[in-house]
Amino acid sequence: MSTTSVTGRPSTADPGAGRSAPGDPMIPRLFEVREVRLDTRDTVTLALEPQDGVPLAHRAGQFTMLHAFGVGEVPISICGDPTQPGPLLHTIRDVGAVTHALVSTPPGTAIGVRGPFGTGWDVTDGVGQDIVVVTGGIGLAPLRPAILEVVSRRAEFGRVVLLYGARSPEDILFAEDMARWAAEHNIVVEITVDYGPPSWTGRVGLVTNLVPRAGFDPLNTLALVCGPEVMMRHAATALVERGVPAQRVRLSMERNMKCGVGLCGHCQVREVFLCVDGPVMDYARLAALMDIREL
């Protein structure tokens, strides 16, 4: 359904969809950090509870703006299960001043949350078809809600394949989740790393190289891709070369989101405002934009 964004521009996405506490999207709600879980040497998952008691509903693929008071605000994808009640989960990589402040927040402390914003993976579009997930690094975090949604409705999908690339074995995210999805939910999980110690007996190489050899029906597939932009471009190309229609390849594009409501233009890529038209968009629409260096 087409809606109108706060910019007045027609948008296929409703930036406020799923927001459980209507209000000014520019004003952060207070959430208390309940748990801080160290996932890898530089990546942490925060479990957040709303101080007003109103849970934040979201769709798989959406993001929020997380505010570390006195430091700044960053866009972070939600990585929790959209089909289950529970704390708001965000997996954050410690790469800058704001993310460092967020991952260092002690339990019991409040941070600000705006959103959720943006489009979702909409895995329902893949019902009756194969699902292929290609992801790398922390790109698995935005896809985790989509995978959990597929898991919760596993019988409705055909073959489900997860191809994941990481820098090294110690950088692999959600290893326990992936093992469980493979063992209990008939998901084919293939993991590859850029390099590893001799004790690593798994794959070493690019995640995109797994696409040609993965078992799925290209013309009957919904592909979900998230990771560094270079990886996504090569993954999308490999999927299309394999025969998946570009319209069935969805990417999560993240570029300097600031306001989250299509107002400030920081995330604008030509006519696209990624915070409201994205972050999840199909490759048929993104391919031309990704090839323009100036964008």
């Binding site: 790398g136 690094g137 690339g165 850029d194 690019l206 560094p228 990886m231």
Partner: peptide, 9 residues
């Protein structure tokens, strides 16, 4: 592509 260390910090 791996030289780019795309998953790096």
């Amino acid at each position: 592509i791996r030289l780019l260390d795309v998953y790096g910090s």
